[in-house]
Write a protein that binds this DNA or RNA. Structure first.
Length: 245
DNA sequence: TGGAATGTTGGAAC
DNA sequence: CGTTCCAACATTCC
């Protein structure tokens, strides 16, 4: 389900549990002992890209929603529960199809928010510098690299490449400096647009390339293929998206 | 109705 | 031992 902006919304919706203490915890998680969460107070929630970080003081639980992750607040659905948490005021939350991991120590040591597109600490220079050492990687891969564009997912990738008129297989090193800057800035601005549209419930109607059949600029058919390291679905227009070489 | 999809991980294989 | 590959996870939509 989620790319970075959705995690911001998740964090807001789950904020009601911050400051409350877990009275009961169960589920099908195998990566750690769920009973560790009992009697622990949820101190704060943070996000790093697509990671939801639940700070319990001594440790942090990282939740990843993968493709189909979802949660239900004060309600359930008829599927196996990955994690059920009940709090001291009787409220509860169920997580389904999520991946959980326990992180010891402080999360500040583990995560760098300078690359997190949705973070206040996001820093263009840091990203520009990282990209410099990746000259032979195609842009479609670099945009999905969570250590470079933390929080960007496949939809954002397709839309950003369309907006910047860059062919997905263009290598980073072949982009003129001005274009490279535009790529970075558009990744951020589009991600904020994504968040606004997600809140409005109008995200899909704003897709110009992702899952589209025809280029809205010149009305010729989009190309669709599975590109890059992870063979992710790419939609692009051979006419208006330039392949720099 | 089967296959693909807003994603990542961990372990096998090489 | 480093890298690459692939199954696994799980649900909804077309």
């Amino acid at each position: 389900m989620p790319e970075g902006p959705s995690l911001i919304i998740f964090k807001e919706e789950l904020q009601q549990f911050v400051g409350k203490t877990v009275t009961s915890a169960s589920g099908s998680i195998k990566s750690f002992d769920i009973s560790m969460l009992e009697d622990k107070k949820l101190k704060r929630l943070k996000t790093w890209g697509k990671h939801l970080l639940c700070d319990f003081g001594d440790f942090t639980m990282r939740i990843h929603f993968l493709m189909f992750g979802v949660y239900y607040i004060n309600s359930s659905k008829d599927k196996p529960v990955r994690l059920y948490l009940e709090f001291d005021d009787g409220s509860y939350v169920n997580f389904y199809s999520t991946a959980h991991k326990l992180l010891e120590g402080t999360i500040e040591e583990v995560y760098d928010w300078k690359t997190d597109v949705m973070s206040e600490e996001w820093d263009e220079k840091t990203v520009a510098k990282k990209i410099k050492s990746m000259s032979d990687r195609p842009v479609c891969d670099v945009l999905l690299d969570q250590d470079v564009f933390t929080g960007v997912g496949n939809i954002i990738k397709n839309e950003v490449l369309f907006l910047t008129k860059i062919h997905p297989l263009t290598q980073i090193g072949d982009l003129p400096p001005k274009k490279r800057k535009e790529l970075i800035e558009t990744a951020v601005s589009y991600t904020y647009d994504f968040l606004d549209w997600k809140r409005e419930g109008t995200l899909r109607s704003h897709w110009q390339a992702h899952r589209q059949k025809t280029c809205p600029r010149d009305h010729i058919p989009f190309h669709k293929d599975y590109l890059g390291e992870n063979k992710r679905q790419s939609f692009w227009c051979e006419e208006c998206q330039k392949r720099y070489e």
